[in-house]
Amino acid sequence: MASAQLLLLVPLLLVTSCVVMASDPSPLQDFCVAYANSTVKVNGVVCKDPKLATADDFFFSGLNKAGNTSGPVGSRVTAVNVVQIPGLNTLGISLARVDYAPWGINPPHTHPRATEILTVLEGTLLVGFVTSNTDNRLFTKVLYKGDVFVFPVGLIHFQQNIGYGPAVALAALSSQNPGVITIANAVFGSNPDIPANILAKAFQVEEATITKIQSKF
Rank of each mutant, 00 (worst) to 15 (best):
P25I: 04
K48E: 12
T131H: 00
L155Q: 02
I162E: 06
S38W: 02
Q176F: 10
Q204A: 11
Y144D: 10
E122M: 01
L125V: 05
P25C: 06
I156V: 14
V153P: 01
K216Q: 15
M1S: 13
I156Q: 04
A4I: 15
S94T: 01
V15G: 00
D135L: 12
A53S: 12
L7T: 12
P195V: 00
D24L: 05
Q84D: 13
G67S: 07
A36H: 11
V42G: 10
V10T: 07
F139V: 15
T140P: 07
V19R: 03
A34P: 06
P72K: 13
A2S: 11
Q176M: 09
F59H: 14
A184L: 01
T140E: 12
K65Y: 12
T54K: 12
N185C: 05
P50L: 01
N191A: 14
L121P: 00
A36W: 10
S3P: 08
K41V: 13
M1Q: 11
Q214W: 04
G154M: 00
S94Q: 08
A55D: 11
E122G: 03
Q176E: 14
L173E: 04
F60K: 03
V98P: 11
F217D: 05
T39E: 13
I210Q: 00
V150C: 10
V153S: 06
A186K: 00
N185A: 14
N185K: 10
A184K: 04
D99C: 06
P86M: 03
A66L: 07
T209I: 14
A184R: 04
V73Q: 08
L13E: 06
V20K: 14
S38P: 08
D193G: 05
S132W: 07
I162Y: 05
P72L: 13
F59Q: 15
N136H: 14
T69F: 01
G104R: 10
V187P: 01
S70D: 11
L199V: 00
I194E: 03
G123R: 03
H109T: 11
G67T: 06
Y144P: 02
T90Y: 04
S174F: 09
W103K: 11
Q159V: 07
V80M: 08
G165E: 15
P11D: 10
D49V: 04
V180M: 12
D135T: 14
L126A: 09
A186R: 00
V82P: 10
F59T: 15
G67A: 02
T110A: 08
V80R: 02
V45F: 12
